[in-house]
Design a protein around this nucleic acid. Structure first.
Length: 117
DNA sequence: GGTCTGACCGGCG
DNA sequence: ACGCCGGCCAGAC
């Protein structure tokens, strides 16, 4: 034990990873929590991804509005300052949102594990 | 220190 | 076809 790893924390890595991927989302594209989770290796724990967003709520660089659930539903819009801001942002990106749902979701879907390496 | 929740996903009845 | 339930990980009280 040449070094003490007791002070090491990899938990933070998870949060930073989610933030990093979220920032890498191209404009006009959307992704799902599960996709990010799978990219991080925790596909089963997609809940953590959305939660990581909540912790990064103060980071404007985090395009959380581009992150939706697997069906393209704006599940996290309720967490935005004005919930309507999420849809407005998506529409501003050129994404059509109807009834809090992303249209052409499968086309606008951006998979980090495929687009990114 | 134990318990609960949480912006999800997938399977089963 | 629809609804319900469990799972997984990490932070907050």
């Amino acid at each position: 034990m040449t070094k003490n790893k007791s002070t090491e924390k990899k938990s933070y890595n998870f949060f930073e990873d989610v933030h990093a991927v979220a920032k890498l989302i191209p404009k006009g594209r959307v992704t799902s929590y599960g996709a990010i989770a799978a990219y991080l290796g925790t596909k089963m724990s997609a809940r953590m991804v959305g939660w990581a967003m909540n912790s990064a709520h103060g980071d404007k660089k985090l395009p959380a509005h581009r992150v939706v659930n697997r069906i393209g539903l704006l599940t996290g819009k309720h967490h935005f300052k004005p919930p309507s801001a999420m849809q407005k942002q998506l529409e501003h990106e050129g994404i059509k949102v109807v009834k809090d749902k992303v249209q052409n979701f499968d086309k606008l879907f951006w998979d980090p594990s495929k687009e990114l390496i």
